[in-house]
Simulated scan of single mutants.
Amino acid sequence: MPPPLPVPTVLEGLPPEPPPLTVTVVEVPPPPAQLPQFAKLDISGDFGSEVRERVANFRAQQQRFLREREEYCTTTMAKVRAAIRDNSELPRSGK
Rank of each mutant, 00 (worst) to 15 (best):
A39L: 11
F58W: 13
G45W: 05
R52P: 00
K79T: 08
A78S: 09
F47Q: 01
V55P: 05
T76P: 02
A56H: 08
S49H: 11
N87L: 14
D42M: 06
K79P: 03
P18I: 01
P8V: 05
S93A: 14
P32N: 01
P91K: 05
V23F: 04
T22K: 09
V25H: 06
T9S: 12
V80L: 11
G94P: 04
R54H: 08
I84Q: 05
L41H: 13
S49Q: 15
P6A: 08
G13S: 15
D46L: 15
K40G: 11
P16H: 02
R64N: 07
P18C: 00
P3C: 02
N87E: 15
E17G: 07
M1D: 13
T76F: 13
E70G: 04
R69G: 14
L14R: 13
V25T: 12
D42F: 01
R92E: 14
T24W: 06
P29N: 00
L66M: 12
E12T: 04
Q34I: 14
M77P: 03
L90D: 08
R59K: 15
G13N: 14
R59H: 07
P3G: 03
V51K: 12
L5W: 00
T76K: 11
T75Q: 14
P4R: 02
P32L: 00
T24Y: 07
V23H: 01
T74M: 09
R67C: 03
V28T: 15
V23E: 03
P30F: 03
S49P: 02
P29G: 04
L21H: 08
P29I: 02
A60N: 07
D86L: 08
V23Y: 00
A33P: 06
A33C: 06
P20R: 04
L5T: 06
S88I: 14
T24R: 14
E89R: 09
